[in-house]
Design a protein around this nucleic acid. Structure first.
Length: 958
RNA sequence: GCGGGAGUGCCGGAGUGGCCAAACGGGACGGGUUUAGGCCCCGUUGACUUAGUGUCUACGCAGGUUCAAAUCCUGUCUCCCGCACCA
């Protein structure tokens, strides 16, 4: 454990004991800040730490600036992940058990005890109960100024009641609708499933794919083929049926269909009635025909083994121009007359099949499938992998760049992207097709049952397009501050395309839908307005208010002030005073003044938050500000648990202590940029902080309350400017500039003055700035700051000390300039001596510029403010009595106009400069142990005297 | 494909029209301190030049606007992120 870790623990303990961050409403201006509540998922790592730490630095500044700051954190447990962990442990999943044994092992050493605790995790609530206190402890190691009394989880009664209240609001306003919706579904569990219920669902995710089932008239009914590409239907040449499998004839709704048995089974889950009539061998169909839409003619049914009964209908319509599988299958048949004979098919008919060009894709001719097969040397259906890749490639290019050809009837000239939708729509409207959902790969649930797609016909949706809602949300957004501002447009776009969103599921932790208990509110929809609980959560606990008491009217009153409090009190059995207190607290803290989050939340959580607030809250409680932070990498790589490259907060605490982390994180990159965690750089920061700490400790011991001589005005001036810079940066949440200012700029400025100030004066400077500096450091490295603050003999906590105000009156740019000039001359003298290779100069002469040049430079500076026109500048100057120096002036002006940086920041007068340099001369004389002569150009005999310019005296070393 | 962002030195990264050979941090090199190492301190680190205050070249590439561009405009290349119902 490092020294910094010890200091951190000491102060974290004291803050806790003294309830430093437990806040109540008072007379001060309030600031209520939030971050998204973290999901319970085992131990915390630095990925979690960024957002909470940034918000902490920012809010600590505001606390010191005199605001009453509320910074709370709660925990999210809704949805399926915690459930999934629980399930995995129940099923004896070794990976999960090991992972969680590791997390638990961070706190408990006894192996038996660990195993016992893991066993309890079969109940999801046990996971929550175990980790919430651990997560609070781990967050606390970061030194957060959080009021932990207000924490809760999304599974707590208060949260559930509040979510119910919100959904009642949605329902009352007509923002909830019911409809059909496809979900992944386990036949054995007879329930919807998520990623964590599916075998290998985390490593090889299963998606829902939307097939179009197209009906081809055949005998008494339809042969039904499945396709993902309805836009290729103008290119159909034949039908593929697998001779090796058995199909079924079935009554589907009111029609007779011929298709695979597997599909028939699945279709029953997708809102269709299916009665199987008989089984039919695949070979039965061969050589016959069926009638195809779009091409509007009979297609020959041919054999192919690539048709998989488990995918789609096991029947595929053939588009050899655009589908590599179809092309190779057709070619194999055309090239093998024997194969045709074997299936009793007329080879001449097969041979006669001609490809129909349908899509014009970038980089391809008439028949992309043929081209790509040739290019990739695909000649056989056995090259399955290559064929799949080729199919992907053709699809991708076709979808993005393709245009329908003249062969495609009224769709000719249409982009593939559009034609796909339009053609499918036409088929559906004509009753010649239906939608069928299929999983993107064969999948099993963890208990071994088959996973399919089922359509639920009573799915609940939030309808963001409900009348008036978007307009209000937009109004809220318009009044919000978005940092960085560039994300506002993204919000606007998201608002545009937000439509109906499924908001409840059949499984998972969370809140049941109050008016339809079969459903659990989905985890993104239940976490949109929970910040409303922070002002009251600890009161609800204190007043022992039960779930039954937190009714809809209860929240209506507490949040919005609606209703008659006496009646409410009687109805729910809560004393009027308590209701008043709840209402007052809410009204004091709300709205949420600032929410700091990751950009990934923009299109869902943050947008929903705005919609939820405008739906449920009075305008004055709408959110005020959202800021964004960037992602976090480790040594250039993404951090993830599966890669095993995360850094647990406990380890961070042990190796560095919170302050090193905070300082590194804030200074490494700007808030909105990607942060790369590089151990080497963190080590550098640790060294720097140690160095800074030592310097401040020493400075504390050598303070004097004495007047600082005017020769150090430059330092004081710069100090004030840096204070201002730090403050301005914090106001903008520019944590990087702030961190750099207090860690480095002030540090090097302090070093500079320490080198040139005499001891007494240096101690006086210490007296003037040290406690200020400590306080300025406090938001960034609060533990170190507290420790030093105490050493400096200050009362109370640095965390609660007033923020140092900068004094504009002390800013003296002339003093700074003079100081810089002195340093420059000093530097030049050193360089000249080096270049001249004179080891022991016996005389140094410094020549101050001619007086008239000061007038010239002053005038030039003024003129250059208005114009860059050489002629007018020259004529203005020549109008004065400087004309006598025209020869020299004509050399100076072009150079200066071309590059105005050649002019000094300030132009002093000759006498002042002479005095300053004379003073320096004395010092130089001591340094080099030689005679130094400072003279004005007018009296100098040195030829170099002519080169002297204001702020740039000529130097001669002999 | 659409939408958004980025391309600056050995590296990370400042800089949004002139005060920029480029903050700050790191690395490398030279020197000081030290028994030695570390820490710390000083200097150098685009090229050329010089007894400093000098000249030239550079901000993905190619053009343009302007007295003046890394910064504005046009084209182009490369990389990253999002394109949803998933937390």
């Amino acid at each position: 454990m490092t020294r910094f870790t010890e200091i951190a623990h000491k102060w974290q303990q004291r803050w806790k004991e003294n309830k430093v961050f437990e806040v109540e409403p008072n007379k001060k201006e309030k600031l209520f800040v939030t971050v998204p509540y973290p999901y319970i998922s085992g131990s915390l790592h630095i990925g979690h730490a960024r957002v909470v730490t940034e918000m902490d630095v920012y809010s600590r500044y505001h606390r010191m600036s005199g605001k009453n700051v509320l910074y709370p954190i709660a925990f999210h447990i809704s949805g399926t992940p915690v459930l999934g962990i629980s399930l995995a442990i129940k099923n004896g999943d070794e990976k999960t058990i090991q992972l969680f044994s590791g997390y638990v092992g961070a706190y408990i050493k006894d192996k038996k005890e660990i195993a016992r605790i893991i066993k309890t995790f079969e109940d999801p609530q046990a996971i929550v109960d175990f980790f919430v206190p651990k997560m609070i402890a781990e967050f606390s190691t970061l030194g957060l100024g959080v009021d932990w009394r207000r924490s809760f989880t999304s599974g707590d009664v208060i949260h559930q009641r509040m979510v119910e209240w919100l959904f009642h609001k949605y329902k009352d306003k007509g923002y909830l609708v019911q409809g059909k919706h496809p979900v992944l579904f386990s036949k054995s569990l007879n329930n919807a499933v998520g990623e964590d219920d599916i075998k290998d669902g985390d490593t090889d995710p299963v998606e829902k794919q939307e097939f179009t089932l197209i009906k081809f008239a055949y005998e008494d009914g339809f042969i039904v083929a499945a396709t993902l590409r309805p836009e290729t239907m103008f290119g159909q040449t034949n039908m593929w049926i697998n001779p090796k499998i058995t199909y079924v004839k079935a009554k589907v709704d009111h029609e007779i269909w011929y298709f695979s048995k597997e599909c028939a089974d699945k279709l029953q889950f997708q809102d269709h009635n299916v009665d199987i009539i008989e089984e039919i061998a695949g070979t039965t169909f061969l050589g016959k025909t069926c009638f195809a839409p779009f091409v509007e003619r009979d297609l020959l049914i041919l054999p192919s083994t690539f048709c998989n009964p488990a995918i789609g209908t096991g029947i595929v319509t053939s588009v050899p121009a655009d589908a590599p599988f179809d092309w190779i299958a057709l070619k194999e048949l055309q090239d093998n007359p024997e194969l045709c004979t074997q299936y009793d098919i007329d080879h001449t008919q097969v041979k006669a099949i001609e490809l129909i060009p349908i899509i014009n894709s970038k980089g391809y001719g008439d028949f992309p499938a043929v081209e790509i097969c040739k290019k990739r040397k695909i000649t056989s259906l056995l090259q399955e992998k290559e064929l799949k890749e080729a199919t992907q490639e053709i699809y991708k290019v076709g979808y993005h760049t393709g245009v329908m050809r003249d062969t495609c009837g009224k769709y000719a000239g249409m982009k593939v992207e559009k034609a796909k939708q339009a053609m499918r729509q036409q088929l559906l409207e004509q009753g010649r097709a239906t939608i069928f959902w299929e999983t993107s790969r064969p999948a099993l649930s963890r208990d071994g049952g088959e996973v399919i797609v089922a359509i639920l016909d009573n799915q609940w949706f939030i309808d963001f397009n409900a009348k008036g809602w978007k307009a209000e949300a937009k109004q809220c957004l318009d009044h919000m501050s978005i940092v960085p501002e560039k994300y506002r447009k993204r919000f606007e776009d998201v608002f545009e395309w937000l439509d109906k969103r499924p908001c409840a599921r059949r499984r998972g932790l969370g809140t049941t839908l109050p008016f339809d208990k079969e459903w659990v509110i989905e985890s993104l929809s239940d976490s949109v307005i929970y910040m409303s609980l922070y002002p009251i959560a600890q009161l609800v606990k204190k007043f022992k208010i039960s779930g039954e008491q937190m009714t809809v009217p209860f929240f209506n009153y507490v949040f919005n002030g609606y209703g008659v409090v006496e009646k409410l009190s009687k109805d729910v059995g809560i004393p009027v005073e308590q209701l008043h207190t709840l209402r007052e607290h809410f009204d004091y803290w709300y709205p949420n003044d600032h929410r700091h989050t990751f950009t990934a939340h923009l299109s869902n959580h943050l947008s929903f938050m705005i919609f939820a607030h405008v739906a449920a809250m009075k305008k004055k409680y709408w959110p005020q500000k959202i800021s964004f932070h960037g992602m976090i990498l480790r040594e250039g790589n993404k951090m993830s648990k599966s890669k095993g490259n995360t850094i647990p907060l406990l380890e961070l605490d042990r190796l560095y202590g919170a302050d090193v982390f905070r300082a590194f994180m804030c200074s490494a990159t700007s808030v909105e940029s990607t942060l790369d965690w590089q151990t080497e750089k963190v080590e550098h920061m640790k060294k720097h902080l140690l160095n800074l700490y030592t310097i401040l400790e020493t400075a504390i011991k050598h303070q004097k309350n004495e007047t600082i001589a005017s020769e150090h005005d430059w330092f004081i001036s710069r100090w004030e400017q840096l204070k201002q810079q730090a403050t301005a940066a914090l106001e903008e949440m520019d944590l990087r500039t702030y961190a750099m200012t207090v860690l480095y700029d002030m540090f090097s400025l302090y070093k500079d003055v320490s080198r040139e100030a005499k001891e007494q004066q240096f101690h006086a400077i210490n007296g003037a700035i040290i406690t200020e500096w400590i306080r300025l450091l406090c938001p960034l490295v609060p533990h170190i700051a507290e420790e030093l603050y105490e050493q400096a003999g200050e009362e109370g906590f640095a965390s609660l000390a007033p923020w140092p105000k900068s004094d504009r009156a002390k800013i003296n740019t002339i003093a700074e300039f003079t100081h810089d000039m002195t340093k420059q001359v000093q530097d030049d003298v050193r360089k000249v001596i080096e270049l001249a290779k004179i080891e022991h100069p016996h005389r140094i002469t410094i020549v101050i510029s001619h007086e008239w040049k000061y007038a010239l430079f002053t005038m030039l500076k003024e003129l250059l403010e208005d114009t860059r026109d050489m002629k007018s500048i020259i004529s203005s100057i020549m109008d004065t009595d400087m004309k006598q120096y025209s020869k020299e002036i004509m050399k100076i002006i072009p150079a200066v106009v071309k590059d105005p940086s050649k002019l000094p920041h300030f132009v002093l007068d000759q006498e002042t400069e002479y005095k300053v340099v004379k003073h320096l001369g004395a010092k130089l004389g001591e340094d080099y142990n030689t005679h130094v002569l400072v003279e004005k150009a007018e009296v100098s005999t040195q030829p170099k005297a002519r080169n002297a310019a204001p702020a740039k005296p000529a130097i001669v070393v002999e």
